[in-house]
């Protein structure tokens, strides 16, 4: 028996919004420690890794490890039927071929349930090596989304250059060149407005704008985003999900042809 309840359906809606542009379907691996999802996008350029800890749920029970392959388009249709403040419960029997998603209004006067067929997805799990990153940048998630959106107008690629002075995002195309520099913030009143750079070595890497823009669909989940970079390895873009877990996107760099 698997059962997981969250106090607010809005969190699940935001999580789905953060992955459904990259993935058509995905396997949710459930165990007593929580729910994990790892999947590559269709073109095998990026990898999404979602961790939801069991202690972040209002109720969590998972008697046996369970892998639930879900069509994310179908799940989006079901979540559209929930009000943001509804309780949401996911339930499945061991070895079941369906999952039930139930919504309850705060006053318990409206209860709806949706049974969704599960899929057998033959998904490869990848081992992600530990990396000592050369640069780790923490910045407001809204600012990162704005930069990715703005620079995508000028080029398919963005160059991220991180030094101890700050982090620079550049795009160059037919229109010309765009550069956006962010310096590390001195003192800020609010932690969520800070730009913090931890640098071991300067690094310059090139990434495809369309993937960065897809990752920024996770912006509503978190006030801050963390970018971890190292020469010739994938960028890690991480959004914390408060009291519940995190979503990490790995993006392979563009390399010299």
């Amino acid at each position: 028996m698997f059962e997981a309840r969250l106090g607010q359906a809005t969190i699940l809606k935001k999580i789905l919004d953060a992955i459904k542009d990259l993935l058509n379907e995905a396997t949710f691996d459930c165990s007593d420690s929580g729910i994990q999802l790892q999947a590559m996008d269709n073109s095998h350029v990026s990898l999404v890794s979602l961790t939801l800890r069991s202690d972040g749920f209002d109720k969590f029970r998972c008697d046996r490890n369970l892998s639930m392959g879900m069509n994310l388009g179908s799940m989006a249709k079901i979540l559209k039927c929930a009000n943001n403040e509804d309780n949401v419960t996911m339930k499945a029997q061991d070895n079941a071929d369906t999952v039930t998603i139930m919504f309850e209004s705060a006053n318990q006067e409206k209860v709806s349930d949706y049974e969704m067929k599960l899929m057998n997805l033959d998904q490869e799990h990848l081992g992600i090596p530990e990396t000592d990153f050369s640069c780790v940048v923490r910045m407001p998630a809204m600012e990162f989304a704005r930069i990715c959106r703005d620079l995508a107008q000028f080029s398919e690629s963005v160059v991220i250059c991180c030094t101890k002075e700050g982090v620079k995002f550049s795009a160059s195309g037919d229109v010309g060149t765009a550069n956006i520099k962010l310096a590390q913030t001195g003192s800020v009143d609010k932690e969520e407005e800070a730009v913090i750079i931890e640098m071991q070595e300067p690094v310059t890497l090139t990434f495809a704008c369309r993937y960065l823009n897809a990752f920024t669909k996770a912006t509503p989940l978190s006030t801050q985003v963390q970018l971890s970079m190292c020469a010739d390895v994938p960028l890690v873009v991480e959004y914390a999900i408060k009291d519940l877990g995190h979503i990490r996107y790995y993006l392979a760099p563009k390399i010299e042809d």
């Binding site: 095998h44 990898l47 799990h125 990848l126 992600i128 090596p129 994938p234 390399i255």
Partner: peptide, 14 residues
């Protein structure tokens, strides 16, 4: 000129 690398060039299959 740059080309897009694949993610599997960096991570190993489990």
């Amino acid at each position: 000129k740059t080309k897009q690398a694949g993610i599997m060039n960096f991570f190993t299959k489990k």
